[in-house]
Write a protein that binds this DNA or RNA. Structure first.
Lengths: 209, 209
DNA sequence: TAGATTGTTAATCGATTAACAATC
DNA sequence: TAGATTGTTAATCGATTAACAATC
């Protein structure tokens, strides 16, 4: 059983390891990874140990081996298809994003209620939501990126779930209420900025920190 | 002392409360907020209790009062100015974002190495990074949104810190190494999608969940 | 009053750190 | 060998839940 906290750490390790690999290194140590990630060496060793990843006493860990193990966890066998819903500011940015491939994902379609969006040149086909089911079935999509305005987010999310979506990356500033089997991951720029300022002590009641 | 976990919960309460207020409600109960947020009623009461927020036994909590207390924590006395660095896909989306005001923030300027970006019509002035210090000083900026490409993210972040930035909302897929006093908050779409898929069980070793 | 809800204390659970033996 | 590093067990710390008295 891997907790959400541990998952986040594993993702950090992977980013750090990819960087070290790119720098030409072949092996690394728990304290080096600690430098890279800010996670304590003990916790790093414990995480690896739980996953059954062995290092060499005195010799550290092989970067390639670690990456293989992490890939077994995060890398999917099949390329996973995702869809994007909402072509406003953020949606348009995400449709032009080029990093899907390297995470073994593929953005197969975008959706918008405004049919005029179909005119513009986007790197993926654009439909209205009427075609969602079709696309979900054809491409076995289970994850959607939701980037519609606040007022229509809940309604659109319901519609996504009704049509087979099980995971939503939600950019709308709304707490979505959905059936328990649906996983939602919120990305909210304002909330992140607010928390950053809060922890910087930029506020009235500084003594509460 | 308020932990990061607790801060996140408080932000969720605020979102839920704003929604309930908009629906015309005047008071609420720990179990209603639990329905909205997915956080247990006991923990909600404990959080409020720690902040010194009192409800009425049997009568619940006043929404307006709760929002006032949360505003004392998250709402800043002065409007906080932020800057945006990098006008690529995501940067361009964020510069057109309209939600800063309602979080009592103000995006005062954007920066890009490419001077041709200055031509385009953006709602804020666009400079090259040479002007950063000037803007930081003039507008007392301590937080920056970093949306530059991966390869220049570390270098740009260093430059931001050298010029007075203490908090960075980082959209580049890089683990930034910065002095301890600098706070970094990462937003990485691919990482979030990967974790979503991981927890949905979309992977090879399903038995490890 | 009876019932519902808060608020607090104690108990539990989970995550991290400390300590240190194993060993390369 | 001596020194460095892993890997594991025990200890600590922190967060959440359970229990229940207080009280509206």
């Amino acid at each position: 059983m891997i907790s959400n906290l541990q998952t986040r750490r594993l993702q950090k390790y992977r980013m750090a390891l990819l960087r070290l690999k790119k720098m030409g290194l072949k092996k690394t140590f728990s304290h080096s990874l600690s430098d890279e990630t800010g996670i304590s060496p003990e916790l790093i060793r414990k995480d690896f140990s739980i996953l059954g990843i062995r290092g060499k006493r005195r010799g550290g860990y092989e970067i390639e081996g670690l990456l293989d193990e992490l890939k077994k966890l995060f890398g999917r066998v099949k390329e996973q298809n995702v869809v994007l819903v909402g072509l406003g500011n953020i949606g348009s940015a995400l449709v032009n994003y080029e990093n899907y491939r390297q995470s073994n994902m593929h953005l197969v379609a975008a959706f918008d209620i405004d049919p005029s969006k179909r005119q513009r040149k986007y790197p993926v086909p654009v439909y209205t939501l009427d075609n969602l089911r079709e696309v979900v079935d054809a491409f076995e999509v289970s994850v959607a990126i939701l980037a519609v305005p606040e007022f229509s987010a809940q309604e659109t999310a319901n519609y996504l779930v009704e049509n087979g979506i099980r995971g939503i990356l939600n950019f709308a500033p709304v707490l979505l209420k959905l059936p328990g089997h649906v996983l939602v991951n919120n990305i909210n720029v304002m909330i992140e900025l607010e928390r950053l300022m809060f922890h910087l002590g930029i506020r009235q009641n500084a003594e509460l920190v």
